[in-house]
């Protein structure tokens, strides 16, 4: 097993942690933390993939773009969470289940 394989598997592991969080968590801000963890996994995977195929700089530049894009997502998500807190008085996503069926 090479270094790249280990790191790629590690990225999948981090992805799994993020997914686990999304399945279990109820606090909106913590859910955004889980989304960030997912993004870390993707960043890592991209760079490792670049390395594995001999295009490490390509992988790096894609990863930088992804970091920027996911920061935007984090900002939007947090702003949304703040609004939810203001309008609903809670961050619990269970309160966000009025639309169903």
């Amino acid at each position: 097993m090479t270094q790249t394989t280990v790191l790629l598997l590690g990225a999948v592991g981090v992805l799994g942690v993020g997914l686990y969080g999304l399945l279990r968590l109820r606090n909106l801000i913590q859910i955004i933390v889980a989304l960030q963890i997912l993004a870390k996994a993707a960043v890592l995977a991209l760079v490792v993939a670049g390395k594995a195929s001999g295009h490490v700089n390509l992988g790096q530049s894609l990863a930088v773009t992804v970091i920027v894009a996911d920061t935007v997502i984090a900002v939007v998500g947090l702003a949304l969470a703040v609004q939810v807190r203001r309008r609903l008085g809670t961050l619990d996503v269970k309160a966000l289940a009025t639309l169903r069926g």
Binding site: A41, L46, A49, A52, S53, G59
Partner: peptide, 18 residues
């Protein structure tokens, strides 16, 4: 966002392979 991260993972896999 979950969907888009999954796509990104797919992109990484494609890059690693090809």
């Amino acid at each position: 966002v979950v969907g888009s991260v999954l796509v990104l993972f797919g992109v990484a896999l494609v890059l690693a392979q090809s």
